[in-house]
Design a protein around this nucleic acid. Structure first.
Lengths: 121, 121
DNA sequence: CAGTATCCAGTCTGATACTG
DNA sequence: CAGTATCAGACTGGATACTG
């Protein structure tokens, strides 16, 4: 099982996916390019700084492309690359699972908290 | 698109998956229960403390079960719950993608580093 | 509009040492 | 064997203010 080796490159990918906003940005771009502010609005509560960092990282990984138009006011569009698009499929599987099983997970967490309460008064 | 709302429960699941060791522990348990030390050896470089934390979190989420036998020396077995097992399928999709596309991602990162070098000397 | 600059609190992770 | 306790460093995410 390669993925379990500490030096396995798959770690790298999973860690990128796992970062706070990566997935949400990718999903937000799933239906076409978006400008910075539109993306920010879609993703929700993220700050400009963090969104920028996320985009730079996704760009470095070749998942997202950035295109700046030489206009005033400035216009920048972010878009999924083909590689980024190819990631949508496994992500959809994850999302489907999450949406189907979130109630179970949350219920389990509740029970766990109740158990802690019972111990500590 | 529900998953993009800040209060969407899917975030919760994705964040758990994204944590440093969660995925590796789940994959390590994919083929049956393991004792703490065996799990530690399989996962690789993780410390006891961090592995314990990861296991507690997965337990709270109902993905992993912990069973302690009343023996000496102590014996504890960790095993995927049915919920945990159900997660293997979407995870396999992710892993397949990662293994297929890691070279592209790494190459992209290289290029990006080269570009930075060119700028900064 | 699309960011950058600064600063900071909290989290994550790990090393190390110890225990029933 | 299966952890817990303690400490410390790196990293993350975010608040706030500012800019071409």
């Amino acid at each position: 099982m390669d993925v379990l080796r500490p030096d396995c490159p798959s770690r790298v990918v999973m860690q990128r996916i796992g970062e706070r906003w990566s997935m949400f940005v990718i999903l937000a771009l799933a239906h076409g390019p978006l400008r910075f502010t539109a993306l920010k609005a879609r993703v929700g509560v993220v700050t400009s700084k963090v969104l920028t960092e996320t985009l730079r990282a996704l760009e470095a990984d070749g998942l997202v492309s950035r295109r700046a138009y030489d206009e005033s006011p400035p216009r920048v569009e972010y878009e999924l690359t083909p590689l980024g698009v190819s990631l949508l499929e496994p992500m959809a599987a994850m999302r489907a699972w999450a949406e189907a099983h979130v109630p179970e997970v949350l219920a389990s967490r509740e029970r766990h908290l109740d158990a802690l309460d019972a111990v500590h008064g």
